[in-house]
Amino acid sequence: MKYIDEFRDGDTARLLAGLIHKEVSPDRNYRLMEFCGGHTHAIFRFGIVDLMPENVRFVHGPGCPVCVLPAGRIEAAIRLAESSDIILCTYADLMRVPAGKKDSLHKARARGADIRMIYSATDALAIAQANPERQVVFFAIGFETTTPPTAAVIRIAAAMALTNFTVFCNHVLTPPAMAHILASGEASIDGILGPSHVSTIIGSQAYADCCAQYRMPLVIAGFEPVDVIQSTLLLIRQINEGIHRVENQYTRAVSASGNRKAKALMDEIFELRPRFEWRGLGELPDSALAIRHTYAAFDAEKRFHMAPVTTTDIKGCICPAVLRGVSNPDECKLFGTVCTPEEPKGACMVSSEGACAAYYSYGRFRAEVTS
């Protein structure tokens, strides 16, 4: 494990943190948004926040795919699972995310709906092959990282002429969400730690227009602690110099153009939705994907005539504000009391990439020590 150890080396981390302390301007504050939930957990898990000067703050963004899915889409999936003789397949993180009326996929399964947790899109395809007499729906979610596997299983299902497999598509796109955050100005940020896995697909140049338009420095960062600290240093240098460009710290995995084969597959299977609702951000234009007409036979929304569902989050939950970067999880009155990972009231407490889950697992202990 030498390769990983190099990116978790304490001496290197302290050296980079020391450079940050030397290079920050004492008369200004630096608010840096980590756009990926994986970065949020790395920052807390490895104590990165404790290595930073007091005037360097990390702001959490809408980079958790489970968290940004609105409750209405989950409620629609629950209604489908309970009203039709289908097998609904989805990832484990989504099972306990609250839907309307304090419901969830987990609770619907307890009531008798055939809802199954899977580890990959191909698992859903295998279930469809093993149950030819049943309709199988894959509840697909995620940013550009998990979109190519969904596209692949749709193409495979088409080649196999499967008639019992469809996808409830909820894939969303990172650059439009980033542009919305910057356009609103609500979060008041000075730089962005760009997402890692997403960038392996779409490439570093996918953020160029956004950074230029909003004059925002962005550094694509890896997930390891040395990655995050080095990327923070690069952001601070950009801010101090008054420049705004896309830098790629995660060069071992991210290229300028990204994964061209994956992008071509996504373009073959999907097209832009005119509008899509995000939890916390509202309806954003051209920010999500729908299955193209060519593959409409594998679109669950069309096959089952799924109607849009409007519902509300649980009263008192500030997850939408956390996703916009305007509130911290510990500012929520529900946090750590009635809302815990075992009994989540908001989506941000459920996912392994959720900011509230990161605060609960690591941040609340830090608060107790420093208070």
Rank of each mutant, 00 (worst) to 15 (best):
Ala157Phe: 11
Ala161Asp: 13
Glu368Trp: 07
Ile115Lys: 07
Asp11Ser: 12
Ser196Cys: 13
Gly191Arg: 00
Gly38Asn: 06
Asp330Tyr: 14
Thr147Gly: 04
Ala300Lys: 04
Met216Leu: 10
His171Tyr: 04
Leu16Asn: 02
Glu75Val: 00
Met216Pro: 11
Glu224Leu: 10
Arg215Ala: 14
Pro53Thr: 08
Pro217Val: 13
Gly37Met: 04
Leu193Pro: 08
His180Cys: 11
Gln213Val: 02
Ala108Lys: 02
Thr150Arg: 02
His244Thr: 04
Ser287Met: 09
Arg366His: 13
Pro132Trp: 03
Asp286Asn: 15
Gly316Trp: 04
Arg303Gln: 12
Glu277Asn: 09
Ala297Ile: 00
Ala262Phe: 07
Gln238Arg: 10
Trp278Glu: 06
Val137Leu: 07
Ala208Met: 01
Glu54Val: 06
Ser120Ile: 04
Glu34Ser: 06
Leu162Asn: 05
Ala256Pro: 01
Asn131Gln: 05
Ala212Glu: 14
Asp11Cys: 04
Ala126Asp: 12
Val172Ile: 15
Ile269Lys: 10
Glu301Tyr: 03
Arg109Met: 11
Ile318Gln: 08
Leu16Ser: 06
Pro149His: 09
Gln238His: 10
Gly316Pro: 09
Asp330Phe: 14
Val56Asp: 04
Met33Pro: 11
Leu233Ala: 12
Ala159Arg: 15
Cys67Tyr: 05
Pro274Ala: 13
Asn164Val: 03
Leu289Trp: 09
Gly185Asn: 10
Gly282Cys: 08
Glu301His: 08
Gly10His: 10
Glu342His: 09
Gln135Arg: 13
Asn240Gln: 12
Ser351Pro: 12
Tyr295Asp: 01
Arg279Ser: 08
Asp299Gln: 06
Ile291Val: 13
Val228Glu: 03
Thr311His: 08
Ala159Asp: 15
Tyr359Met: 15
Pro62Trp: 00
Ala347Gly: 05
His293Tyr: 05
Val68Asn: 01
Lys315Ser: 13
Cys67Arg: 06
Lys261His: 10
Ala140Met: 05
Asn240Arg: 13
Pro320Cys: 05
Asn164Ala: 11
Thr145Lys: 06
Ile291Phe: 01
Ala187Phe: 03
Pro98Val: 03
Ala110Gln: 14
Thr163Phe: 00
Pro341Ser: 07
Leu334Asp: 05
Ile236Tyr: 10
Ser199Cys: 12
Thr337Gln: 12
Asp209Cys: 03
Ala140Lys: 01
Leu265Ala: 07
Phe223Ile: 15
Gly72Ile: 03
Gly18Pro: 06
Phe276Ile: 00
Gly363Asp: 06
Thr310Tyr: 08
Ala161Tyr: 05
Thr166Pro: 03
Ser351Phe: 11
Glu144Ile: 10
Glu277Thr: 12
Phe168Glu: 09
Glu353Phe: 00
Leu94Lys: 02
Ile43Ala: 12
Leu32Val: 14
Cys317Glu: 04
Arg364Thr: 11
Glu277Val: 09
Gly258Tyr: 02
Thr90Val: 04
Met117Glu: 15
Glu224Gln: 14
Ile48Ala: 06
Arg215Met: 09
Glu6Ala: 14
